[in-house]
Simulated scan of single mutants.
Amino acid sequence: MSQQTDVLKAEARERVGKGSARAIRRNGKIPAIIYGDKKEPLSITLPYKEVFHRIHSGGFMTTLATIDVNGEKIQVLPRDYQLDPVRDFLMHVDFLRIGKGSVVTVNVPVHFINEEESPGIKRGGVLNVVRHEVEFECPATAIPEYIEVELAGLEIGDSVHISAVKLPEGVKPTITDRDFTIATVAAPAGLKAEEEEGAEAAEAEEAGEEEAKGGDEE
């Protein structure tokens, strides 16, 4: 689990709305809101550069943070942020307040390991990633930074399902009705073409044999 050790300094804000938000951004800050844990939503402002840096450093959406609002320290988890569609400028951030025993739903990145130990990939097979992220339900204080998928021993045509992944205690996939696929090792294009040609040749040979049999019967 990833958790920031430093604290984001914030200020509570009373005024809300587009005009107030524009003024906040002009002053090098970003409007944000903290909600959840059965408490009233709290509108705040945060330093723009600090938040922008955290977002682009990776792992922002699965990392707990502490926000100091006028002396009150609040543990939060980022839930959403909005960017200007044209300028890629950070517009707003939503945080979920984390209380004791909080359980959250998060998308966790998938990391693939030991690719060099996959016989199928060594033969030219292609790793076909079905899910780059997997949605999990887990304790807010135990969010995994990523899950690892083992590729050692995989042959062409093999698949890796969620049941093959070792998950931390308390972490459960939100999809529970099937053993869904995370990745497969697909045949390379050249091998596929050879297999298709071979199948066509076999079909043609079989058709010829059937035709010959029909001629003999006559």
Rank of each mutant, 00 (worst) to 15 (best):
A189Y: 14
V130G: 03
V51S: 09
I147L: 03
E205M: 11
G190N: 11
V16L: 13
R131D: 03
I113D: 05
R97L: 03
V104L: 00
Y81K: 04
V69R: 02
P119S: 01
M61A: 08
L77S: 01
V103R: 05
L64R: 14
P41R: 07
F136R: 08
V129K: 14
K172Y: 04
K166H: 09
R87T: 07
E200M: 13
P139W: 09
D84F: 05
E169W: 04
E148S: 12
N27G: 02
D37G: 04
K172F: 15
E155N: 14
E211K: 14
Q4R: 05
D94E: 08
K122R: 13
N70S: 13
T66V: 06
G71K: 04
K29P: 00
T174Q: 05
F52P: 02
I33C: 10
H92Y: 07
A212L: 14
R178K: 14
R54E: 13
K39L: 07
C138Q: 10
H92K: 09
G124L: 07
E116Y: 10
Q4G: 06
R97G: 00
N114W: 02
E72T: 04
I30V: 12
A183Y: 02
R178C: 07
E194K: 15
E115W: 04
S43P: 09
A12K: 12
V129C: 06
L77V: 14
A186V: 04
E11L: 07
V126N: 04
E196F: 01
H161I: 08
K192F: 10
L151K: 03
P173Q: 11
G101C: 09
L167K: 02
E197F: 00
E116D: 15
V86H: 14
I156T: 05
H53F: 12
G17S: 10
M61T: 05
N128W: 02
G28V: 06
I98S: 02
M1C: 08
I44Y: 04
